[in-house]
Computed example of a mutant assay.
Amino acid sequence: MSDLAANAVLTSLARSPVLAHFSQGGLERLAASGAWLALQPGEVLFQAGDPGDAVYVVVDGEVEVRNSTPDGRDVRLVALGPGALVGEMAALDGGPRSADVAATRRARLWRIARSAMLAALEAEPKAAVALVIELSARLRVADGAISDKTVLDLAGRLARLLLTEAGASGLVALTQTEIGRRLGFSREKVNRKIHEWVREGWVEVSPAGIRMLDPTRLEALIEHQLGT
């Protein structure tokens, strides 16, 4: 591996909320023990049920964690960018993968075998604690998403997504197809609800995405459905 590639790997490892807790020597050992993996847009890294034989670090690009609905539609659970750790849960317990992971755009990942990761965590307990904290945070997010699906209907979940994804300008740069994938609804249902809000003056639709005009209305809708 060239010096430039080695530096890219070390930088990505150090960017991870978990791996940043390793010593420099620990990071160098993880870098030396791994291997490159390149993915093209849409290419699958692993699928639910595959063996948890490795953990991956996103060096550049983006992957998404997703599952499938009973009617065969993909629903995105979370997107992971540079520095993110991928597949750590199955790599920890050696069980099967619990979801699919695929590239949303060209991506390079650093593959670390399960045995190498476990040895590194055993050698540096501080990093092991950081991993537990990271997994706990992800579990909280997952619990929140499950709660939303239980309590909020399409309108509530769509409002939550728009409020979460909006930039400083109030613009959500997602297509309605992508929004539907994230929420687990068809594009047609998402389109109808958005255009209902356009008529109400809550949002506007442009080639750049969906811009919120009255976010307080969306916040009130969520609070009403949650009973707060």
Rank of each mutant, 00 (worst) to 15 (best):
P96T: 08
G167R: 08
S206L: 12
L183V: 08
A54H: 02
G156H: 07
L80N: 02
N67E: 14
A119T: 05
V58S: 01
P51Q: 13
L45E: 00
V75Y: 04
A79T: 10
R29N: 08
S169D: 14
L221S: 03
S68P: 05
T164R: 14
L183M: 10
L4T: 15
A128K: 01
L4V: 15
S2H: 12
V44P: 03
R76S: 10
E223R: 15
V132L: 11
D53V: 06
V18L: 04
V172M: 02
I133R: 14
L139Y: 09
Q225R: 04
G25I: 08
Q24K: 15
A38I: 09
A142S: 15
W197S: 02
A54W: 00
V59D: 01
V59K: 01
A107Y: 01
A48V: 11
S2P: 15
V141G: 10
G184P: 03
G170C: 03
R97I: 06
I210Q: 00
V101M: 01
T104K: 06
A99E: 04
A103I: 03
D148E: 11
L171K: 10
I133Q: 15
L10Q: 06
H21T: 02
A79M: 15
L13R: 01
A173V: 12
V55A: 02
F185R: 08
E124P: 01
L10M: 09
E204P: 10
S206M: 09
T69G: 14
P96F: 07
A103L: 05
L118M: 07
E64Y: 05
V190C: 04
V205D: 09
G26A: 11
E188I: 13
A208T: 15
V172H: 00
Q176E: 09
M1R: 11
K126S: 12
G83L: 09
T177E: 11
A208N: 13
S2R: 12
D60K: 08
A84N: 02
V132N: 13
A8K: 09
R106G: 07
D60C: 10
G184Y: 03
M89E: 04
A142F: 15
M212D: 00
D153H: 11
V78L: 10
E188V: 11
L183H: 01
S16C: 13
V57K: 02
E178H: 07
A90W: 00
M89V: 06
E134H: 09
D3E: 14
T175I: 06
L77R: 06
V172R: 00
L30A: 02
D60W: 06
S2V: 14
A20L: 12
A168S: 11
L30R: 01
L109W: 02
G184E: 05
R140L: 12
F22E: 00
L174T: 06
E62K: 10
R15L: 09
R138D: 06
E178M: 08
V129E: 12
